[in-house]
Computed example of a mutant assay.
Amino acid sequence: MNIEELRDYCIAKNAVTEELPFGPDTLVFKVASKVFLLVGLDQLEGLSFNVKCDPEYAISLRQEFLQTVFPGYHMNKKHWNTVHANRELTDQKLLELIDHSYDLVFASLPKKIKENL
């Protein structure tokens, strides 16, 4: 997976916006103004990104994929993972982690906002 594929996948999701709120080097994807994925645009070696994750699932992923999934860099380590693409996980699994993050954030939105989306 490369950053263009990551971006295309994220912006194709319902009600997603992309922003650069932390400066020109960090692209942030949001659903209804809530962050579900962050990716650095200044990466030279490999692609990594931060995704939200159920806390128990986050720990499980970190234990199973020691070279690929880490506690979220500059994030709440209980709820966020940093995932390195093109290592132990297939592109399909990476997409599943993106979906999981999006779904967690979407589920946390107020009912009225969800209905409007």
Rank of each mutant, 00 (worst) to 15 (best):
67 Q>T: 15
16 V>G: 10
31 V>I: 06
38 L>N: 04
28 V>R: 03
13 K>W: 10
116 N>R: 15
62 R>W: 14
102 Y>N: 04
26 T>Y: 04
33 S>W: 02
95 L>P: 00
7 R>G: 07
47 L>V: 03
101 S>F: 02
87 R>N: 14
89 L>S: 06
56 E>I: 14
74 H>R: 10
16 V>L: 01
37 L>N: 11
100 H>Q: 08
22 F>T: 06
104 L>G: 03
18 E>S: 13
10 C>P: 08
21 P>R: 03
13 K>I: 09
58 A>S: 14
27 L>Y: 02
9 Y>N: 11
38 L>I: 02
96 E>A: 12
67 Q>L: 15
11 I>K: 07
63 Q>K: 15
52 K>V: 08
72 G>N: 02
29 F>Q: 03
77 K>I: 07
114 K>V: 02
12 A>F: 09
10 C>S: 11
95 L>H: 08
50 N>I: 03
33 S>E: 09
105 V>L: 08
54 D>E: 06
96 E>S: 00
14 N>R: 15
86 N>A: 06
66 L>R: 15
98 I>T: 00
15 A>S: 11
109 L>I: 05
67 Q>R: 15
24 P>D: 13
22 F>W: 13
8 D>R: 13
89 L>V: 04
111 K>R: 08
26 T>N: 11
99 D>S: 01
83 V>K: 12
113 I>M: 09
100 H>R: 08
64 E>L: 12
75 M>V: 07
62 R>G: 07
57 Y>L: 14
4 E>M: 14
61 L>C: 12
96 E>D: 06
105 V>M: 09
37 L>D: 12
88 E>V: 10
67 Q>N: 15
79 H>T: 06
38 L>Q: 02
55 P>H: 02
53 C>W: 03
84 H>D: 10
56 E>W: 14
102 Y>I: 00
114 K>E: 13
9 Y>E: 05
100 H>V: 05
44 L>A: 15
28 V>G: 10
83 V>T: 09
6 L>I: 11
25 D>C: 11
83 V>F: 09
82 T>G: 01
24 P>A: 10
76 N>A: 06
102 Y>V: 05
70 F>P: 12
15 A>W: 11
55 P>Q: 01
105 V>H: 11
90 T>I: 03
71 P>G: 08
38 L>T: 04
74 H>G: 06
69 V>W: 05
99 D>R: 05
94 L>P: 02
13 K>S: 01
66 L>C: 13
63 Q>S: 14
93 K>H: 04
53 C>T: 10
27 L>C: 07
30 K>M: 01
12 A>R: 11
21 P>Y: 03
82 T>E: 01
114 K>Y: 14
105 V>F: 02
13 K>T: 09
87 R>F: 13
76 N>R: 11
103 D>S: 09
43 Q>L: 12
69 V>C: 08
34 K>W: 00
70 F>D: 06
25 D>T: 13
104 L>E: 04
33 S>C: 10
36 F>M: 03
108 S>P: 12
88 E>M: 08
61 L>Q: 05
52 K>A: 00
4 E>K: 10
83 V>A: 04
21 P>I: 04
46 G>K: 00
13 K>P: 12
82 T>H: 03
48 S>G: 06
91 D>L: 02
5 E>A: 11
41 L>S: 00
78 K>G: 07
95 L>G: 00
45 E>F: 14
80 W>G: 08
71 P>D: 14
48 S>Q: 15
117 L>D: 01
2 N>L: 15
96 E>Y: 10
103 D>Q: 14
